[in-house]
């Protein structure tokens, strides 16, 4: 049985809009314009126990809104979802004790108190057995190297220190499902690597299910074998990370090593030239034409070696995000009288 199941899950926001300026402000008193924004649009997926799934998409794609619904913060406007067999937005305390949401840009810690105080409160609120809790806390402090920051007020911690404390706070009660929203945002590369290792370790040792959103592809490639790509509220891809390029990138990268220098040669008949060194040439060619182009290159040029590869995952995602930045019809303008309802 899947641990997370979303069926046609949707969330539409009704957003007030107006032109800039005083006149527009006065006009909006009488007649307000609203736009329906389909932040999440009939999204369906299932996630099995112990999976780590990357949830990818550009800003505003609907990733965080989906996480908010799965953690019970938001009610959907359509569809259904269950996590651990519970309907998240019913906010059953037994459900909330089994999940955790770590938000890179929102803190669960008490800002003015030392982190150790936040951990104590967390254990009491989640009903963690005192003896077990002390042992778990000790282990987390060791693993995350938190010994030096426990007594400092949270507001004085660096971003990296705070994020490690957030992870500690989130895992003190051993959640079975972990929602991570940009857990490495703003922290340096070394810290990013440590956080990734820690998440992978938690997943391995506890069989926890993890959904991760991140703009850092290194997070995704290091942790996720499966990715769900979402854009304009809809799923573009759901499958193994390795298959992402095949589905979303309509091109291949051909690299050839030549016997002699070919400076000045024209490679445009073969494909788009990505890089050219003295005897090494990299071309981007349409996926369907890759085999034919490879044959022609072998026939026409003094080729020593030839490789045909999918483009790097970063390029594929970057391309998807860039294309998503184009204007689209995600919003449905609607003139409606003043008053708000989702």
């Amino acid at each position: 049985m899947p641990q997370i199941e979303a069926q046609e899950l949707s969330r539409t926001f009704r957003v007030a809009e107006r032109e800039t300026g005083l006149l527009a402000a006065l006009r909006s008193l009488v007649r307000r314009k609203h736009r329906l924004v389909h932040a999440v649009d009939r999204v369906s997926f299932t996630i099995e126990t112990g999976e780590i799934v990357g949830f990818l998409g550009p800003n505003g794609a609907g990733k965080t809104t989906t996480l908010k619904m799965l953690t019970g913060l938001l009610h959907p406007t359509g569809g259904a979802a269950t996590v651990l067999g519970c309907v998240p937005w019913r906010r059953d305390p037994d459900y909330l004790r089994q999940i955790s949401l770590v938000m890179g840009q929102r803190s669960q810690l008490y800002w003015d108190l030392p982190a150790a105080d936040s951990f104590e409160v967390q254990m009491s609120v989640y009903g963690v057995d005192r003896t077990d809790g002390r042992r778990v806390l000790h282990d987390l402090i060791e693993l995350l190297d938190l010994g030096g920051v426990l007594k400092k007020p949270v507001r004085t911690l660096s971003l990296g220190e705070r994020m490690k404390c957030e992870l500690c706070m989130a895992l003190l009660y051993r959640p079975r499902v972990l929602f991570l929203d940009e857990p490495t945002i703003g922290v340096d590369i070394t810290m990013q690597a440590r956080i990734r290792q820690f998440i992978a370790g938690y997943n391995r040792s506890h069989g926890a299910t993890v959904i991760l959103t991140s703009h850092y592809m290194a997070d995704v490639t290091a942790l996720c074998r499966r990715v769900i790509v979402i854009d304009h509220g809809r799923i573009l891809f759901d499958g193994p990370l390795a298959a992402l390029a095949g589905r979303l990138a309509p091109f291949k990268v051909i690299t050839i090593d030549l016997e002699r220098d070919v400076n000045g040669s024209d490679f445009t008949p073969y494909g788009e030239l990505l890089e050219q060194e003295a005897r090494k040439v990299t071309l981007r060619v349409p996926r369907d034409a890759a085999a034919g182009v490879a044959s022609r290159l072998l026939a026409d040029l003094p080729v020593l070696d030839l490789t045909v590869q999918d483009p790097p995952i970063e390029d594929v995602i970057g391309r998807v995000f860039a294309e998503s930045a184009r204007p689209s019809g995600a919003g449905t303008p609607a003139d409606e009288p003043a008053g708000a309802s989702p």
Binding site: V121, M123, S124, V125, G127
Partner: peptide
């Protein structure tokens, strides 16, 4: 002590500590 009383007393201790910070 367990359940809500334990949780609430922990929150109360946190609140008192916070108030003392901004006395």
């Amino acid at each position: 002590m367990s359940g809500l009383p334990r949780a609430w007393l922990a929150l109360l201790r946190r609140s008192i500590a916070g108030m003392i910070q901004y006395r």
